[in-house]
Amino acid sequence: MSLTTIKKSNLASDLIILKGKLESEGITCYLKNEFTTQLMHYVPTCEVELQVLNSDLEQVEKIMSAMQV
């Protein structure tokens, strides 16, 4: 199972809408470093990464393009 990061942010809340849209389309998503950033929110280099399976990348790109993300 290979994952690709499609978007990064210092706050998990910035990624929630996109994650919800992708999951509503049947795409499994993961938030890497979600809890680390909640504990270490004062560290600017600590980012949350929205990741998807490599096999879903083509569909994800179409969705993100339609959302203008």
Rank of each mutant, 00 (worst) to 15 (best):
Q59E: 09
E25V: 05
M64Y: 11
S13K: 09
I16T: 05
Y30L: 07
S55K: 11
T37K: 15
E34W: 01
E47W: 15
S9L: 03
L31Q: 00
S13C: 12
K32M: 09
G26L: 07
S13M: 10
E47C: 15
E49C: 06
E25T: 03
L39E: 12
M67Y: 09
L3Y: 04
K62H: 05
T28S: 11
L50P: 02
C29Y: 04
M67K: 05
L50H: 00
V52S: 01
T37Q: 14
F35P: 01
V69E: 14
M67A: 06
L31R: 01
Y42A: 08
K62P: 04
S9I: 09
F35E: 12
Q38Y: 11
E25F: 09
E23A: 02
M1S: 14
K19R: 13
H41V: 01
T4N: 15
M1C: 05
N33S: 15
G20S: 15
K7M: 06
K62Q: 08
G26A: 09
Q59R: 14
L31Y: 05
L57E: 13
E23F: 06
K19F: 02
L22Y: 00
Q51H: 04
Q59W: 01
L15Y: 07
E25P: 06
I63M: 02
V52K: 00
E58T: 08
S24K: 14
T36L: 15
L15H: 06
L3D: 02
S2K: 11
T37G: 08
L50S: 02
C46P: 05
S13Q: 09
L11N: 11
E34C: 03
T37Y: 06
A66N: 11
V43E: 03
V52P: 05
C46I: 12
Y42I: 11
N33R: 12
T5S: 12
E34H: 08
K8S: 11
M40R: 15
S13E: 10
M67V: 01
T5K: 09
K32V: 10
L22G: 00
L57Y: 06
M64G: 02
L39W: 07
I17M: 10
L18C: 07
Q68T: 08
A66K: 13
K62S: 09
F35T: 14
I16H: 02
K21E: 15
Q38N: 04
I16N: 02
V43Y: 03
L57K: 07
S9T: 06
T36Y: 05
V52E: 05
S2V: 07
V69Q: 12
N33H: 10
I16W: 00
N54W: 02
T28C: 04
Q38A: 12
I63Y: 00
E23W: 05
E34D: 13
H41N: 10
D56Y: 00
F35A: 12
L53P: 05
K19N: 11
G26R: 02
V52C: 05
E61C: 07
E34R: 10
K32A: 13
T45G: 11
I27F: 01
M1G: 07
T5D: 00
